[in-house]
Structures are given as structure tokens and as C-alpha cells.
Deep mutational scan, measured.
Amino acid sequence: GKELVLALYDYQEKSPREVTMKKGDILTLLNSTNKDWWKVEVNDRQGFVPAAYVKKLDP
């Protein structure tokens, strides 16, 4: 199944490769191989958020 992450903080995108999220958002995790930036999908948009700003949810 899909892996989900919880947004721990608000994040405002600073480049087109990033996405904005609000604290409490549930996002689909697409790629977590980079320790600093994780690729997520939110509202049909894909992009990166700081890994420290999200937490993996237990399945």
C-alpha cells in the first residue's frame, strides 16, 4: 500500500520542485531515499518537503 506521512509543521514551498503543506496534513510518501528532502504528493501535486518536517505514519 501507499506510505503516508504527517506534516509536523507548516511548510511554504521555496522553489517549483517543492510543495506547500500545512501542519496536520496527511501526505502520500513517494520517495524517502534522500535523508534531507522527501518527495510527497499532496492535492495531486508532487514535490519535495524537508524530511524533518514530516513523520511516517504507522501502517
Rank of each mutant, 00 (worst) to 15 (best):
V42C: 13
D44T: 06
S15V: 04
T33V: 06
K22D: 07
Y53I: 13
D58A: 08
M21W: 00
N43H: 15
P16N: 10
L6N: 04
K2N: 07
K35G: 13
Y9I: 14
A51S: 14
D44Q: 15
K2H: 05
W38R: 02
D44C: 15
T28S: 13
W38D: 02
E41V: 10
K22S: 14
V40G: 00
K14Q: 08
D44G: 13
V40F: 00
T20V: 03
P59C: 08
T20K: 04
W38K: 02
L6I: 15
Y11C: 01
P50K: 02
K23E: 15
Y11M: 01
N34D: 13
P16T: 14
V42W: 07
K2S: 09
L30K: 07
V40N: 00
N31R: 06
A51H: 03
Y9S: 14
D58G: 15
V19E: 01
K14E: 09
Y9W: 11
G47R: 02
D58M: 06
V19I: 15
K23G: 05
L6W: 07
D25V: 05
E13Q: 14
D44Y: 06
K22Q: 15
K35P: 15
K39H: 09
N31P: 04
K14C: 11
V42K: 15
G47A: 04
Y53W: 09
V19S: 02
V54T: 05
P16K: 15
L8K: 11
K39P: 01
T33R: 11
F48A: 04
L30V: 14
E13H: 08
D44V: 06
D36P: 02
K23R: 09
L27F: 06
D58W: 07
G47N: 00
G47D: 01
K14G: 09
R17A: 09
K35Q: 11
W37T: 03
K56Y: 07
L8G: 04
R45Y: 05
Y9R: 15
K22W: 06
K2D: 05
K23L: 03
A7N: 00
N34A: 13
K14L: 11
Q12D: 13
T33C: 09
D10A: 11
K39M: 12
Y11R: 03
V54L: 14
K35Y: 09
P50C: 00
S32T: 13
M21R: 00
V54N: 02
K22N: 14
N34G: 15
E3W: 03
E13C: 10
V40D: 01
F48S: 04
K56V: 11
D10G: 05
G47I: 03
Y53R: 09
G47T: 02
T20P: 12
D36I: 15
N31C: 13
D10F: 01
Q12N: 08
T33W: 08
E3L: 07
L30S: 05
E18D: 06
R17Y: 07
W37A: 04
E41D: 10
M21Y: 01
L29Y: 02
K35I: 07
S32G: 12
W37N: 03
K56S: 07
P50Y: 00
V5H: 04
P16L: 09
N31E: 14
Q12F: 12
P59E: 08
W37V: 05
D36R: 10
R45C: 12
K22M: 12
V40R: 00
F48I: 12
K39I: 09
E3F: 10
V40P: 01
G47W: 02
G1P: 01
S32L: 04
Y9G: 15
V5Y: 11
D36V: 11
I26P: 02
G47V: 04
K55T: 14
